[in-house]
Design a protein around this nucleic acid. Structure first.
Lengths: 228, 228, 228, 228
DNA sequence: AATGAATGAGATTTCATTCAT
DNA sequence: GATGAATGAAATCTCATTCAT
């Protein structure tokens, strides 16, 4: 029935509207500067309506994270071609970051709110914890984490990375570093945020990490990340 | 005058009590989960009394940071001996972290509240910003930053570190990484925190960074940090 | 749409309820003796609800003043007939005071809170000040003032009042006197207030003022104000 | 005994110190802007000590009024010479105001705080009330009031003032007017207070009052008050 | 006599959440 | 399904007054 379809579609659209408005407000005012009232106003809805779509503020925030993260992951997977080396995949990963970081501030959102949602991450160094903690292994943070960890592991296998490094530690280090930087960015007053500088800084940091885990004797010029 | 002395001492003790209780609550509930009421209750004082010792909540928090940070800095400076190489100083620095991290959770506090106090740090990549931003160059975060940056710079001069790396970026990377980890630790529910694991993880991360900035050809075993 | 109408009406009524309760409390306890809690309690609402209707206590108070003052001004303007002499207008003005003073204690409210809102009045003896001070010339105190001043000025033109008197000073004197009296009344414990006596006293004072500014030779019996 | 004398003298001096400091603070910050803490600090005493000299803040304030008022009254009585006409006495009274208003801001204090202490004054139009109300007839407000009332009454007897006016009403009118003006002055931020303008305004108002109560046919130039 | 640390009630304001319509 | 009025708990901070020393 058409009417049923339309209702369903409207519901999805309205949910997307709320998410979109919330993200904009979060970017503008930071995580502690946004109230349900603000969101309702921006979305031109009533506060009550928000609760029809999200059981609580926390859930609304969580969903923003999930949605943004899964969009990134999807994007990354569409870019992957079989037969890529670990190094190539890492560079591709970085390129995807750049694309999405340029296209939207979603990355900032994801990471700046992670604390809110999964405060203990990444310091549950044993993968098993994720599950026992009630953290769903299909949840984005875990996917991010395993994605990176597996690339590092692959690189070790290919002889690019030092077999003495622990892929889990490296993945957590990269995520920590990245998280921290975007969090700080998210907290900067908007006019000060300068994507160029931020990206350059992160790139520099990541290159240091790559050199730090590279097998001795690898040509260092191979470890440079692509520019924007 | 015994009586005067005692009063003075009691005042100092009471201030210390408030600081101690606040730190414990911060560690337990995180920076947004502690109210003046909570602090008063824990210290078995009235809310009004807190305001006798600290003009505002912000000042109370600031004092906790300053005090803990300056304690670390002082400690570090007492350990320095003239003629140490950059690498030796970095290892010493790490050893001091370990000492204080083992002795108390102050390090966690310092960094978990840094945001509260210097939110834009470390993403003001040019040192000049610190001053123009109204950030006092004598304030602890700046001292931490310059301390590390100068050690890296010295290491470049000594041929230990790659002259192509930017000492400022490295210092910011190390602080970011460390900040992030302790922030996350601070947010963990207390029973889960496991100092052993945390330290091992940070150590591993830092060693990766050190390898990443080392001059090619340096003996990698020299870049290992001391264990606890 | 009945339902929409009713909601709207209820909202207006609730706002009126809050204003009414606040006025009663102000009359009972004076401007410094009323808290938002008191108002909420009297209106049988929660504190939070008050803030749905008024953004701050100050705004609530301001609205009370504006509303009462503009009611008086409107009333006065409906009573004016073209061609009235200055003396007739002054008597009409007085009659309007009596009407409203008998009908409610609003007049008391207006003046007893004037300080809160325009503290420097009437001691900015030059009209220009009103504007430079940020005082909106459309705000009630200014309208009150100019209304009286212009009547006096008209009376000078008509030969009723002494051309040597400064209409501005006279207007300020009358307002000062009236203000002071109602302020004092507002501060009296309620059972003591005796409208009859107050009005008689003010009337007497105003008649003295009128005689004081009358042109010499005017028949003094013309300067008597109407009784209640 | 000398020691007893000294103690007594010190006590009086300390009390005077507290009163002096309080007055200065009141003039600077207004009646709602001064706390016991402020007073203690300014007097370089402890808060507890204030309570040794005054049972409550209210009493401290009351005493300031009494003291200032009685100083004025004393001064006025020293200036009176026998045989003065009512008009001469009124002019002398005004001159005394000018003297004290120039010499100190005590007048402001007296009147700006009167409300605090004797809120019903002057609207207890029957003299008897003063006594029945528990208001001590020797208390300054009453003396001020009777002083003026008696001068007016004398003037009526001398044929200067209109026998139809009620001396009590006139006295209350004058006090009301004066009170109101100084109250407003007291509330002005200090830099704006301009004694010259204030005095000119009050003088103008009082002259209107004098003309308003003068017997018809009196030479109006006799009713002008002396300039500063 | 003097201190000043401590109190505790009370002020204004915010905001996530609920629920009758 | 949508509304938005209402709630009530909680936050920070102030200040007159008390009382052990």
């Amino acid at each position: 029935m058409g009417i049923h379809e339309r209702k369903k579609r409207e519901k999805v659209e309205r949910k997307a509207l709320i998410l979109r408005c919330t993200k904009e407000l979060l970017l503008e005012h930071g995580i502690d500067g946004v109230s349900m009232q603000d969101i309702a106003k921006k979305a031109e809805l009533s506060k009550g309506t928000l609760y029809l779509y999200f059981p609580s503020k926390e859930d609304l925030y969580r969903e923003i994270c999930e949605e943004a993260a899964s969009r990134f992951i999807t994007y990354f997977y569409t870019q992957i071609r079989p037969g890529l080396s670990a190094l190539e995949m890492i560079k591709l990963h970085w390129r995807c970051y750049l694309d999405m970081f340029g296209a939207s501030y979603d990355m900032i959102i994801i990471f700046s709110m992670k604390h809110y949602i999964a405060p203990a991450f990444p310091f549950t160094p044993f993968e098993e914890n994720f599950k026992t903690e009630g953290a769903d292994s299909s949840r984005s943070p875990y996917i991010f984490y395993t994605m990176i960890r597996d690339m590092i592991q692959q690189g070790i296998g290919e002889g690019t990375f030092d077999p003495l490094v622990n892929a889990g530690v490296v993945a957590r280090t990269m995520l920590s570093l990245f998280s921290y930087i975007v969090e700080n960015v998210a907290k900067m007053p908007e006019p000060k945020r300068n994507a160029q500088i931020i990206i350059k800084e992160v790139k520099h940091s990541f290159e240091i990490l790559l050199r730090g885990i590279a097998q001795e004797g690898i040509d260092r010029s191979l470890l440079l990340l692509p520019d924007i």
